[in-house]
Design a protein around this nucleic acid. Structure first.
Length: 423
RNA sequence: GGAGAGAUGGCCGAGUGGACGAAGGCGCACGCCUGGAGAGCGUGUAGACGUUACCGCGUCUCCUGGGUUCAAAUCCCAGUCUCUCCGCCA
């Protein structure tokens, strides 16, 4: 959520930022509502002050056994007015919030301006796509031949976009989860979190999934719970409504969770294989930082995620997303895109975003810069480290051999119980 | 699922209709004291919003939301969460 005071004091800056994302409108509406709200608020607070003063006077008079009926009747009338004005203010609040909750974050100055991925900027790349002396197969073919994935039975027991992992396929999934968690905990200094996979509505609003993207979420029937679309939601919200001490920042968390996405609007896209599932596993990195540190922490978070791909020997590139391609809550976002031989393209495998104070304001995540100083909003960041299903797909495709077998990267062998080749 | 108890500031804890944004203690910050530390003494110590050149002033918040009342931490209703006992259960 954008800062209402920033909109009030610097509307042109906000308009310009939103324009880069094709979301310019409604600032004038916010300003008008805000103006009206503050007028009504002043009115009603004046009346409440009067009520408070007179009520104390009534108390004094009664204690002195003096008649106070006139004052009491007068306050009854004032109360009517207060009730009415309170309603007006509340309605204005709701209208303002409805707009603010629907406005995306402002892009940072160095974010390329564009309407879609055409203006994304490749920052660097690592590794070289292998040249195969044979026609590389897609991961779903390799996986079915090696009995790693069972797409048909996934569809049978659940539906489209659900897959059963089997044997060494299941083992590979588990190995990758453990490998990534160990790397980030032991080498990169993150604290491991295992959160609930169901969260309440406040969390979904806090990180920006709600109210705008309800149709992308799975909502669970008894109780008002949502299945998490990413560990970002429970982990970022761990400290919602809290005031953290500056000395405890940055908070660096890593969490494995299953993720659940309705994929509304993706019908027909990536229907084969593991690329786009309703349920997938992910190891997620989350940071809460001081505002002045978030830009540097963003860079190091990207590098922490890149390290996974490097150790797995998977070629990738780092892309800086354009203003039109970024997620709703992000102020700046790098995607890591891994090379998929069967597609002949780089595909997103990690999205690393700095949200600045956008989520923190929604979830009221604050810190105290100095003892006795006023609390400020933290900056929140997160990135996949990595999406497991897509890593499996990339690993299987990139490390396939002419005979249809898959070589296991060295770092993963211990996690695979010593297995070096899947055949 | 049944029965009961509870939720107050960073923490502990008092407070059952009016001088309570809230005693007291702990913690923390600053000052005095000390060669230094400790002890002791003193002062200060919630957040949001509005208003304001500044000092400040005002409103709201004692789990949340309603209600009663001139006036609610305190009374009433609904909900959330925590704890204890019983049942069931991975």
């Amino acid at each position: 959520m954008l800062d209402l005071k920033l909109i009030r004091t610097n509307p042109d800056q906000v308009r310009a930022g939103l324009a880069k994302r094709g979301a310019a409108g409604l600032i004038d509406e916010v300003l008008r509502l805000d103006q009206e709200r503050r007028e009504k608020l002043t009115n009603v607070e004046t009346l409440k002050n009067k009520r408070n003063v007179v009520s104390k006077e009534v108390g004094r008079l009664k204690a002195a056994k003096v008649e106070a009926t006139n004052l009491i009747n007068e306050m009854k009338a004032v109360n009517e007015e207060i009730r009415e004005l309170d309603g007006v203010v509340r309605e204005l609040d709701e209208q303002i919030d409805a707009i603010l909750f629907a406005l995306p974050n402002l892009p940072q100055a160095d974010v390329p301006v564009g309407t879609d991925d055409q203006t994304n900027l490749e920052i660097r790349h690592w590794g070289k796509p292998r040249s195969f002396p044979f026609e590389p197969k897609p991961h779903w073919e390799l996986g079915e031949e090696l009995d790693l994935f069972d797409f048909d039975r996934g569809a049978k027991i659940s539906g489209a976009r659900f897959t059963v992992l089997k044997g060494l396929g299941a083992r590979l999934e588990r190995a990758l989860v453990n490998f990534m968690l160990d790397l980030h905990v032991n080498e990169h200094g993150y604290t491991e979190i295992f959160p609930p996979f169901l969260v309440n509505e406040d969390c979904m609003v806090g990180t920006g999934q709600l109210p705008k993207f309800e149709e992308d979420m799975f909502k669970v029937a008894p109780g008002d719970y949502y299945l998490i679309p990413t560990a970002e939601v429970p982990v970022t919200n761990l400290h919602r409504e809290e005031i953290l001490e500056a000395e405890n920042l940055p908070k660096k968390y890593v969490a494995y969770t299953a993720c659940f996405r309705a994929e509304a609007g993706s019908a027909g896209r990536d229907t084969r294989g593991l690329i786009r599932q309703h349920q997938f596993n992910k190891v997620e990195l989350v940071k809460l930082t001081k505002p002045e540190d978030s830009y540097q922490e963003h860079e190091s978070l990207v590098q922490d995620a890149e390290k996974v791909l490097q150790l797995l020997n998977l070629p990738y590139r780092v892309v800086l997303l354009s203003s039109g391609d970024m997620g709703f809550s992000a102020s700046k976002c790098y995607d890591l895109e891994v090379w998929l031989p069967s597609f002949g393209v780089y595909r997103e495998i990690s999205s690393c975003s700095n949200f600045e104070d956008f989520q923190a304001r929604r979830g009221n995540l604050r810190f105290r810069p100095e003892p006795d100083a006023k609390p400020e909003f933290v900056h929140t960041l997160n990135g996949s480290g990595l999406a497991i299903g897509r890593t499996v797909a990339a690993l299987v495709e990139n490390h396939q051999q002419a005979d249809g077998s898959i070589t296991i990267p060295e770092v993963l062998v211990p996690y695979m119980g010593g297995i070096t080749v899947i055949k």
